[in-house]
Design a protein around this nucleic acid. Sequence first.
DNA 1: GACTGTGAAGCCATTCACAGCT
DNA 2: AGCTGTGAATGGCTTCACAGTC
Lengths: 207, 207
Amino acid sequence: MKIQKIPEASIVRMSVYSRYLSRLDQKGIVTTSSGEIADGVGVSPAQVRKDLAYFGEFGTRGVGYNVKDLHHHVLKILGLTNEWPVVLVGAGNLGTALCVYRGFRERGFKIVGVLDSDPKKHGQPLGDLVILPMDKMEEIIKENDVKMGIVTVPSDFAQDIVNLLVKYGVKAILNFAPRAITVPEDVELRNVDLAVNLEVLTFKLSS
Amino acid sequence: MKIQKIPEASIVRMSVYSRYLSRLDQKGIVTTSSGEIADGVGVSPAQVRKDLAYFGEFGTRGVGYNVKDLHHHVLKILGLTNEWPVVLVGAGNLGTALCVYRGFRERGFKIVGVLDSDPKKHGQPLGDLVILPMDKMEEIIKENDVKMGIVTVPSDFAQDIVNLLVKYGVKAILNFAPRAITVPEDVELRNVDLAVNLEVLTFKLSS
DNA sequence: GACTGTGAAGCCATTCACAGCT
DNA sequence: AGCTGTGAATGGCTTCACAGTC
């Protein structure tokens, strides 16, 4: 295998494969194939093989893949073999929902701090945490060695919050505010725009 | 302009442009350019022009675009000139958060019904709605002429719920369950996988 | 001079098709 | 015979570069 750039879409699919492999493993299935995975997640078998091939040779020709083995490899590729501490900023409706979202914990993400600028919220319990004021950000990040942040503050404040997170050493940010945000080169940013997803649907319904 | 297939990525960007144009309009700005829009949303000017060109000629050479005018055109293209009634299924943490999410209402999406299978939740207020049992689905959809649904139920039930929505006439579904879901050809489906977004970040942090 | 609209070129991702292994 | 791994072919999106317009 030559070294080459890996498409972001492949990484997204790797994450999806890993969830499917975890299900196969739970069902006690020992061996699988690119065809089975493809059916299970809704892509082509060639796509599955190509994606996996970016990272190594995990299968046996004529046989397929060992489920446990492949699952472990994929988790390792995604960096999910250890728990990730995460700080969440913005304890509004969306923030509180994400804070207790089981899908994150199941995949090894642990929210270790929830911050909000509203003094009325400070001290309020949220899951097994307590909402803290913004000036606790540095402490939370440093004490827990936090590298990831989730931003669910109103759009107007998103860039400022992101700047703060970066200042205190966060290296990857998931932003839910529908605004263009900039970060330094060594920081990873992903945006999730919930309304956009509905609007793609209305476009298709209308055309 | 020739007829041609429009990339989905272009539609996503159109939605982003429309939000930026709405901000420019609010600020009272009358004229803009592909360069300004590009800077504002973080893409290239050529990309902006190409995207818009899929749908028509909205600008004036040497001048730029009229903000109000372009904004209106983009909203019309996205099918956002009328309010869309939406039904939401699954009043867990994520579902309740989305139900009162301002970002949806601001863009013309109105949740007209929240359903959950848990009898303990029935009758509980949620925003200005009340959580209803699943067997009210048909009534809600028919009475409000609902064409869009949001699914925030546990993964194991997502396909069943989607099947029900489709059965009662919903034509576009936004699914938050991390499972492969299938729908008939005439139904649009989009998946939002929140954990995947964090996992793409961990991949990048780890590599 | 400034900015749009667009064919052509370049680039990137997916699919194909088959050699290689069990 | 069955399935992986992969170079080659295809298809699609983005960028380039410039003619057209004000």
